[in-house]
Design a protein around this nucleic acid. Structure first.
Lengths: 222, 222
DNA sequence: GAGCTTTTTTAGGCGAATCTAAAAAAAAAT
DNA sequence: ATTTTTTTTTAGATTCGCCTAAAAAAGCTC
């Protein structure tokens, strides 16, 4: 069975819209895909024939199990490529979406699994969204302040709530950047500081004041 | 101007066929692209309209300057991705061609230039073929036995003329593998050995007997 | 529940890239 | 220099993904 780029985009769009409303309308899809409702209807018939969606005229659509599985594989590819672009190629996390939209349609399964290994099997993309694993299982993600991170759990830095020059300077000094994998190794109540590791490096100590501005995502069941 | 995947494949095929014969025939193209001559004729008309080829019915085709430039950009992408797949993801160099055929059509110029940097601006792909730079300039490549490599020039290992277990064992011991960047730092005539570095690491000494089995590629003008 | 509005589908077409079958041009052979 | 063979082009279909315009179904409103 061959899945075209266009079909994959429909499947992904249906997946995302299902998060809001379990039954997805033709109009909502047309809006999402920047296309016309008539075109959507055409495609829905084809996706139905390929058993990727449940579809009855005028009744909206839902992904079938195999449609859902496919959607998760596409999202996995999209998010792994985003991670790659930010972590390895130094792109800003605002500019990667568009490029990942193209890369997510590269078909090789082996490629994506090796990329996953190469990147260290990350649990979240640069926006903190969970990356499904090769089996299509989506890790449960907490997105919180670094100070809420339990000791010993690895988490990825997804945003900084203060963009001042002083802050960026401090972050650079600690070699902390968006996407860095952080782990709390110790908490010191006395002087309100915490000891962390960055990217598995040596432990460093930072103030709770700094930690309060760092927002991280981590998987809750490993 | 928009270039589709199919058009890009035609341009690339014409480029490669021009290496053998400066005037490319419809039949040769059809063979190369696994399509029919009639389809080729259709496409040639379109490529001609877009000024990518010189085309007169019955007279074969040649790339125009802009067609040539486009071909070099596609080849650059193809070979950089191949390098990435082998060097970073650990693919064997036989299995990367097919995947690179897909990756080469990703459009972002910024992506490919950053990938180039990330990979250390390699001059050759895993097969020893030259990688055009961002301006479309193709480095001149020597492919020879490691023993012919001048002292101090970096070269990439592209093949090993002996696949015995003993040989592979020895290579693993020296952490030499296909794609490794080698440089000769010293030659010792006395015991027929040479001193080399692998991937910029510390110098190691190997026998000329081993070196005779290693084939490398390097750029002749840097 | 009759009429109006919105949503969705159908019908018919278009451009891209392919195909087959047939015609035309070029090349080769005698 | 004809004839034969090969190559190339034209003509006419097909599939895919999209479009517009019009019809049909569903959903509101009073």
């Amino acid at each position: 069975m061959k899945y075209s780029t266009s079909k994959e985009n429909y499947i992904k769009a249906i997946y995302h819209l299902e998060q809001e409303d379990p039954v997805v309308s033709t109009n909502a899809l047309a809006r999402q895909l920047a296309t016309k409702p008539a075109s959507v209807t055409d495609m829905l018939k084809k996706l139905h024939e390929q058993q990727l969606i449940h579809y009855e005229p005028y009744k909206g659509v839902q992904l079938t199990d195999s449609g859902n599985k496919l959607a998760l594989q596409i999202i996995r590819k999209h998010r792994l490529w985003e991670f790659f672009l930010v972590e390895k190629l130094g792109f800003g996390w605002e500019e990667v979406h568009e490029i990942a939209e193209e890369l997510e349609h590269i078909s090789s399964k082996k490629l994506i699994d090796r990329l996953d290994d190469f990147l260290g099997k990350p649990k979240t993309d640069p926006h903190g969204d969970p990356i499904p694993d090769a089996a299509g299982i989506v890790p449960k993600i907490e997105k919180r302040c670094l100070l809420d991170l339990p000791v010993g759990i690895a988490a990825d830095l997804i945003s900084v709530s203060n963009q001042s020059a002083d802050m960026l300077d401090l972050l650079r000094h600690h070699q902390i950047e968006i996407g860095s994998r952080l782990k709390i190794t110790n908490r010191f109540r006395f002087d309100r500081s915490i000891q962390i590791t960055v990217q598995g490096g040596p432990p460093v100590t930072i103030s709770e004041q700094l930690g309060a501005h760092l927002y991280v995502a981590w998987a809750t069941e490993d």
